[in-house]
């Protein structure tokens, strides 16, 4: 009984971290102006939050059959998540999307050019 309680408290902490990352990723999806930066920020939601959720679910798994499958899913996710991001980034790169440069850098460059 107590072992279950400890597992639940740990899982609650991990799920809280997942909610934090997921919210930040979703905000990042709207905060930055170009596809590359959105992809980077949304990786918080699409990669870290999903991994964290899977680890939390692993802690709460009721049987070994379920736990082993969750481990296999995590291992395959380590391969499939970057493949998806890479396809999207490569598509943007091949379509010739320009990279967003924040104002701070642009002024620095301008100042260097002026004299």
């Amino acid at each position: 009984m107590t072992a279950m309680m400890i597992r639940e408290v740990l899982a609650a902490c991990i799920f809280a971290a997942a909610v934090l990352f997921g919210t930040a990723g979703v905000i990042g999806l709207f905060r930055f102006p170009d596809p590359y930066s959105r992809l980077q920020a949304s990786a918080l939601c699409g990669t870290t939050a999903v991994l964290t959720t899977c680890v939390g679910a692993l802690l709460l798994a009721p049987s070994w059959a379920v736990a082993s499958r969750v481990i296999v899913i995590i291992i395959f996710f380590l391969f499939s998540a970057p493949t998806g991001s890479h396809i999207v980034a490569r598509f943007a790169w091949n379509a010739g999307t320009p990279v967003w440069r924040p104002d701070r850098l642009r002024t620095l460059k301008g100042r260097r050019k002026a004299p």
Binding site: L29, P35, S42, G46, V50, V88, F91
Partner: peptide, 15 residues
Amino acid sequence: TAADRLVALNVMSGI
């Protein structure tokens, strides 16, 4: 752009 839509789809598949 189409790239933005693909980014959103990418996140949705993870979710």
